[in-house]
């Protein structure tokens, strides 16, 4: 236990916080964090669906959980059921074998829901394109709010895409 505590203290806080004036990336991340907090307010829950990717996009989504990006600290959490989700984060291309599973996941997600397609394949089918086995882009199967290009997109780009989707979200607190 002593070793663990010592190591935690030695590691310190890695989450990228206050920017250095000359550090473009840090500025970007901090701006992102502020905007996400402004829009999300309390929490955003995300259900990830790999609809047929080569798994590189999954690696970058997983990286959002590391201490540098600390997505949980922004109030954004990955959840284990579409019933608990505000947003679907979908990687593609959508294989025809995943078409029904993706549609069912979409249907199981309560309204109002957001869909973010991740990666070149999710955006346009990528190198796999459309075929007997691939439906291509995510929007060929379910409605998509935001598509994030990249092969794979960096964690920062994915955060940016999530933010873009959230900031487009129609206001739900208007009372008639």
């Amino acid at each position: 236990m002593y070793q663990i505590i010592k190591q935690i203290l030695k590691t310190g806080i890695k989450t990228e916080g206050p920017p250095q004036a000359d550090d473009a990336l840090r500025v970007e991340i901090q701006n992102l964090q502020e905007q996400i907090l402004r829009h999300v307010g309390r929490a955003l829950t995300i259900r990830c669906v790999d609809a047929g990717s080569c798994n590189a996009c999954e690696l970058e989504i997983q990286a959002l959980n590391n201490a540098y990006y600390n997505i949980g600290g922004l109030g954004i959490n990955f959840v284990a059921s579409p019933r608990h989700a505000d947003m679907l984060l979908v990687t593609g291309p959508v294989s025809r074998h995943m078409e029904i599973a993706l549609k069912r996941t979409y249907d199981a997600t309560p309204d109002p829901k957001l869909v973010v397609a991740v990666g070149d394949c999710g955006c346009n089918g990528g190198i796999f394109a459309e075929s007997y086995a691939s439906c291509g882009r995510v929007s060929n199967v379910i409605p998509v709010d935001v598509a994030i290009p990249g092969c794979p997109p960096t964690p920062t780009a994915i955060l940016q895409g999530i933010l873009t989707a959230v900031s487009r979200r129609p206001s739900t607190d208007t009372t008639p």
């Binding site: 790999d50 990717s53 291309p93 025809r96 190198i127 796999f128 086995a133």
Partner: peptide
Amino acid sequence: LGYTHKGVEKRFESLNLEQGAKL
């Protein structure tokens, strides 16, 4: 398994040796 079958082997057959590297 088989859920992520996206036709990779068929796709290769539409490419030449240079294009295949990316796939």
